[in-house]
Design a protein around this nucleic acid. Structure first.
Lengths: 128, 128, 128, 128
DNA sequence: GTGGTCTAGACCACT
DNA sequence: GTGGTCTAGACCACC
């Protein structure tokens, strides 16, 4: 849990490298609007020490976000979100991912199967 | 597209290492029943040459699947699927993933948003 | 565009640090005669605010120009150009740079290629 | 001078960071055809030790070239040039640069001045 | 052997 | 304080 109430985690056991885990989580927070235009990301040093990473690992993640046009870094003034023209809603983000996942895994879900899936997911999400 | 009609792909540009891409795809095919009990995986050499990978990369993926108890390799008979105690259906797999994704990304979707998501996904899946 | 009709720009995305971008542009303007002997550079505060830079960044650029003997700063009278012993013409400046570039890049241009180059450049310069 | 007869140098005193000096030189060698399609760049370790740099510095340069689509790196098989659709000739490269330089520096050269420039440059190039 | 990532700590540029 | 770069050396994935 970082200062701003956004929590980010890194799984060192995962085959996905830490910088990419970071990048993906931040990209999603931005895409979904949790980090909107002008929002400041935690400082490199802050996030690195929070997560027990080397500074450069965070720098790498921020650099990739910048290359993707999601964020802008300036020496001395930190890293800020550049809002995407049309903010992507949670549903759209979830849907894009679900769809991509199904395709990538060749799950060939029928409509009924997919709906069953989402109902199942909803039923098992721990939520207050 | 490998011999058995199952197609597997490896993206060299991805930060996820090839052996893990392989492992994940095979694990899903098994979890979902596309590769059922007793099904034979392609031979190491076959799959490696199909994908332009070194044999060892495929060996690594198979080894991890074996360690997870999903397949069994025996000299002479290749690598075969050991059906999981309860075969996981497509919906369950999709749902688990969707749910895990939402949690990992802190998307905090409401039920309505999640349903909207799945409808969106369905509408955008190219299907015959 | 600064006060004197000379325009200077800083690209924050460039790997070249801002103070050096400033220094190089000013040095060229001087070398080429656009800023002649006795010409006054914009005040540090002026230039800094025009470009959205911190004062110290401009100070740094001016300091390097002074160390190179191109300008002189005096309290009260700002920063003035000290004309180089022999004023360098545009052609000479361009030529020096072109030549240095070719050498640095090992382009090994023949005379014909270089002439073709300059003709091409001329044809593509937007000029009134 | 590296193995392949291409020589690359890094100036540690320059304000331009080493990885960028590297990137620019390699990009030019490719743009100009000195490193054509399929040509293999020196290995990261090779180049790093030739130039007295840390491996990561070379890695960074190669990564940027890859992001620009000039080059492709594969673990185990090195880094190869992906030829640009239309190979850029030496003259074009030189001209583009000269033109860009003139514009960036506001040299406002006339055609005559530019021609004088190139003649001057040619006269002062040390060439066998 | 190849490239890819990470660390720990340094120094620089910038606000 | 901020981000940006470099080093030295480690370990991993891949051919």
């Amino acid at each position: 849990m970082t200062a701003d109430g956004i929590s980010i985690g890194v799984n060192h056991a995962s085959p996905v490298p830490p910088y990419e885990q970071l990048r993906a989580q931040l990209a999603d927070l931005i895409a979904v609007g949790r980090l909107g235009q002008g929002a400041r990301l935690p400082s490199v040093r802050q996030l690195a020490s929070d997560l027990g990473l080397a500074n450069n690992t965070v720098v790498r993640a921020y650099r990739e976000l910048e290359a993707a046009g999601l964020v802008e870094s300036r020496r001395g003034s930190g890293t800020q979100v550049i809002a995407p023209s049309a903010t992507t809603g949670i549903e759209v983000k979830l849907a894009e991912h679900t769809s991509a996942y199904a395709a990538a895994r060749q799950l060939n879900a029928t409509n009924d199967e997919a709906l069953a899936a989402i109902r199942y997911a909803l039923a098992h999400l721990d939520r207050p």
